[in-house]
Amino acid sequence: MSNTDFVLAIEDLTVSFDGFKAIDTLNLYIDREELRVIIGPNGAGKTTLLDLICGKTRASGGSIKFKNTEITRMAEHKIVRAGVGRKFQTPSIYENLSVFKNLEVSFPQGRSVFGALRFKTSTEVIARIHAVAEEIGLEALLHTEAGLLSHGQKQWLEIGMLLMQEPELLMLDEPIAGMSARERELTAELLQRICRKRSMIVIEHDMEFVRRIAHKVTVMHQGKILAEGSMDKVQNDAKVIDVYLGH
């Protein structure tokens, strides 16, 4: 395949677990500064797709290119360093550390063993931690132990930890699951703000929320793409109504 302007270009991606094709010859292109939402019934392969992009699962075939660089067989930490950030479904934060430390550890400096030994919390790092904490609304809680945060705040903290790395592609797996209405509201605003500088892929089930944030929607079903386009187009697609949205 030739070079493209896409941030992420996935072509013919396939992965099979014992003969079961969780992802089946899938093609997906993400533009710069695009916020793409992936929806689909359970078991459609949405989370597996994110696992494949970030290197957690290895593809059986096909290619994943990030900014025209093949990342299909790259080591996980190198994919991150190339600029791909991934948030897990359940909040994955360091519960025993303070919010400040959680963000500090995520700062992309001192990533080697001896680099980490020499790492100093410079004013630049502190400034960045404060900027990100303000963005995610946790500035007043910087010195709180992360385990004591509410569920919604933990989700934001993990997003903040990814923002510390300034990724060009940010992938979020069900970021508003278990959030209150108010928290969903704030999260939608947060996602809209942060996608001004980067591309994002969000997996979500809440249609209200999807309508609010999505630039484009991709519907997955049985490891394949069922439909793609604007929310209105997808919602009126006969196949989508049939397998997912229901009559």
């Binding site: 970030c54 957690k56 080591a75 996980e76 930490h77 991150v80 360093r81 950030g85 991934r86 897990f88 994955s92 934060i93 360091y94 519960e95 025993n96 550390l97 430390k101 500090e104 550890v105 995520s106 992309p108 001192g110 990533r111 080697s112 063993v113 980490a116 030994l117 020499r118 790492f119 993990e158 930890m161 790395q165």
Partner: peptide, 24 residues
């Protein structure tokens, strides 16, 4: 040091450390 914090972080959430760009 940050190394100490990372070792602790790795003990509790190895995936998160790895997907924050560290070779665990």
């Amino acid at each position: 040091t940050k190394l100490g914090t990372l070792l602790l972080a790795m003990r509790d959430k190895e995936d998160r450390v790895q997907f924050s760009g560290y070779d665990v």
